Amino acid sequence: MLVDIYNRAKKLHIETDVRRVVYIIETNRDKEGNELEKVRSIFEGKNKDFVTAVDEKNIIVVKEVDDSDSGADLNKTAEVILGLFKGDSDIHIAYGTVVGEIKEVSRSYKEARMALDVGKIFFEERNIIAYSALGIGRLIYQLPLPLCKMFIKEIFGGKSPDDFDEETLTTINKFFENSLNVSETSRQLYIHRNTLVYRLDKLQKSTGLDLRVFEDAITFKIALMVVKYMKYMETLDY
């Protein structure tokens, strides 16, 4: 209860109206088991920051931040923590948004928790992910699976983006990376511009979506993300 939060904070001499952010560090703690002490070593002497283990895999840091701290500063803290685990690719760090009162710390934790999960689906190449960087991924993550299946069926009929060959998928991803720029995409793929146009025309015939049209491109991008989310959720079921 809210009153308990403030009474407990007063008893423990914890300031209530201070800017804080929550970090979650997911570790592979079945090895040495000294990850908690490693993380605590960074924050030694800083009695306004709190470090604790949530369960066998997750450590949280509730860090006090200054008014001048930017998103880059928050990310720098995450990088310092990550530096403790050099060579360990199993480490994932996520953090929520900065909150102004102690009652909102739980919100920052929930955001960090979501960032950790969503990051594994859409940003698997990153060890550090911020809630603010999730974009549309955090909306897709909250969609019920039946709705996702219905959406994919409406867009692709009986097909799935997984049915496309490697060349087509590479072309699509590179086209999105280059903000739908035909010239730059063909240059990076080392193909003639006309070859790229031919591939896009072929894709339009099979799906009814022209990736050179912004609205179609958005639909296609969302569909790819939805399929990725569905596949991830299926692995959890197993």
Score class of each variant (00 low, 15 high):
K57W: 07
A130S: 14
K48E: 13
R8M: 11
E154V: 10
I140N: 13
A217D: 08
I93W: 00
I91S: 07
D162T: 04
V105N: 07
N47F: 04
N58D: 12
I59Y: 02
I172A: 12
I102Q: 12
A223W: 02
V65I: 12
P161G: 08
I60M: 14
N194P: 00
V18G: 08
F151G: 06
K63P: 00
T171F: 07
F50D: 06
V197C: 01
G96N: 03
G96H: 02
V39F: 00
S108V: 02
A78E: 06
S183G: 04
Y6M: 09
R40P: 01
I25K: 09
I191V: 06
G135I: 03
D17G: 06
D201G: 12
A72T: 05
E111R: 04
K153T: 11
S179L: 14
F50G: 03
D237V: 09
M1P: 03
A78V: 01
A94T: 00
V18A: 15
A133D: 13
D30E: 09
L145V: 11
S186P: 12
A112D: 02
K205H: 09
I152Q: 14
I102F: 10
R40V: 01
I191A: 02
T97K: 12
R187W: 01
Q204T: 13
I155L: 15
K231V: 00
L2Y: 06
T97S: 15
S70F: 02
N58I: 09
K221P: 03
E111V: 00
S41Y: 00
L169R: 11
G137N: 10
D67W: 02
Q142M: 10
V61I: 14
I42Q: 05
E35G: 05
E32R: 02
D165N: 11
G137L: 08
Y229W: 05
G158I: 08
T77E: 10
V18K: 13
K110S: 10
F122S: 05
A130E: 02
G100E: 14
G45H: 01
M114Q: 10
L116P: 02
K57E: 15
L84M: 13
T171D: 13
K149C: 00
V61F: 05
I152E: 13
L84G: 11
L139D: 15
Q142V: 01
Q188I: 05
S179E: 15
I91N: 05
L139P: 09
D88M: 07
L145R: 09
K63G: 03
R107N: 10
G87M: 09
L84Q: 11
K159H: 08
A217N: 06
F214N: 13
N58A: 13
F43P: 02
V65Q: 10
V65L: 13
R8Y: 02
R199G: 08
T219A: 06
T219V: 07
G100Q: 12
I121Y: 07
N181W: 04
I60H: 06
D66L: 15
E104I: 00
I5C: 12
F43C: 04
N75F: 00
